[in-house]
């Protein structure tokens, strides 16, 4: 597996045309739906959050992006979903295309219209609105709230999450953490996305609930919606995804089929060995190595230090 070279901050110069590191074009499938190529993102003038990141999400299936806190995972999602500006961030180089349509520099509404919907980290349901209104809000980007398609989407969501049907009139803020996560995913599904972006769906959930959510993600993918899953909980993510990328300090460090990646020493040591990981006790996804010598994680690597960004 290739390892990206550390690159100095690019400043305002356009990003180099070639791939700065290890994202291998050979992994790109023909007709790949979402293509992020050589993406550079900065916050303010000096803080480089992404340096030449390239990933590809095929039209179906689950792709995961792993990385520690501050590796740039959320930044990647923000760049795709068009919410960078809300965080003072800007794309400084590279391209983002979906089905050949440019998404770089477009706003969140454009991404939604193109069929990409993100479930934000920490769920972020509209606490003061009822469950039903939250689901309605998921339709706001589509422009039609009363059509048959909207009704269908609603039925699909309630089928997926029966608990939401029971709680329809309740304020979303009163739901449990797991229920809120379901609502957040359900809300995103209302728009009928072709590609669902999930930002740390397992964060802060009880192990039981993590399993449920993982199950739901798999179901969504099986129904034909592509999923880009960003996770710190590598055990869960690698169990779900076909393809995985590892982000570190704003660069793609490792990439490959998830199962293959899960067997590499580096990933085992860095992402699967920590017994504190909440997901550890969770999903017994096949092919995921469980026992990694704890000693391997004892010396934190410099590259995994919390990186401000």
């Amino acid at each position: 597996m290739a390892r990206a070279e550390h690159q100095p901050p690019q400043g305002n110069e356009p990003a180099p045309a070639e791939h700065p590191g290890g994202a291998h074009p050979r992994l790109r499938q023909a007709g790949g739906a979402l293509v992020v190529d050589g993406l550079h993102v900065a916050y303010g003038r000096s803080v480089q959050a992404l340096r030449g990141v390239s990933i590809t999400v095929p039209p179906s299936g689950i792709v995961t992006v792993l990385g520690s806190n501050g590796a740039g995972k959320s930044t990647l999602l923000r760049a795709i979903s068009g919410t960078l500006f809300l965080h003072h961030g800007a794309v400084e180089g590279g391209t983002i295309t979906y089905n050949g349509q440019n998404l770089r520099g477009r706003d969140a509404a454009a991404a939604v219209r193109a069929g990409i919907v993100q479930v934000p980290e920490g769920r972020r349901v509209f606490a003061g609105l009822s469950v039903a209104e939250n689901l309605q809000a998921g339709l706001l980007g589509t422009g039609d709230r009363r059509s048959a398609r909207a009704k269908q989407a609603r039925e699909r969501v309630l089928e997926l999450f029966p608990v939401l049907a029971e709680r329809e009139t309740q304020h979303a803020g009163l739901l449990s953490g797991g229920e809120q996560q379901m609502l957040a995913i359900g809300r995103a599904l209302m728009a009928g996305p072709k590609l669902l972006l999930l930002d740390e769906p397992s964060l802060g959930l009880a192990p039981m609930m993590v399993g449920r959510i993982a199950q739901v993600i798999r179901e969504i993918a099986e129904q034909g919606t592509a999923v880009l899953l960003v996770e710190q909980n590598a055990a869960v993510a690698l169990g779900l995804a076909e393809t995985a990328y590892v982000l570190d300090v704003g660069e793609v460090r490792l990439t490959g089929p998830a199962a293959e990646l899960a067997r590499t020493d580096e990933v085992r040591r860095l992402y699967l060995g920590d017994h504190d990981e909440s997901g550890h006790a969770g999903t017994p996804a096949e092919g995921t190595p469980h026992e990694t010598p704890a000693a391997a994680t004892s010396a934190p690597r410099a590259t995994l230090r919390r990186w401000r960004g």
């Binding site: 916050y43 303010g44 501050g70 930044t75 965080h87 961030g89 960004g309």
Partner: peptide
């Protein structure tokens, strides 16, 4: 209510 941090 907006998040204050720039990146996760």
């Amino acid at each position: 209510k907006e998040p204050q941090g720039a990146a996760s």
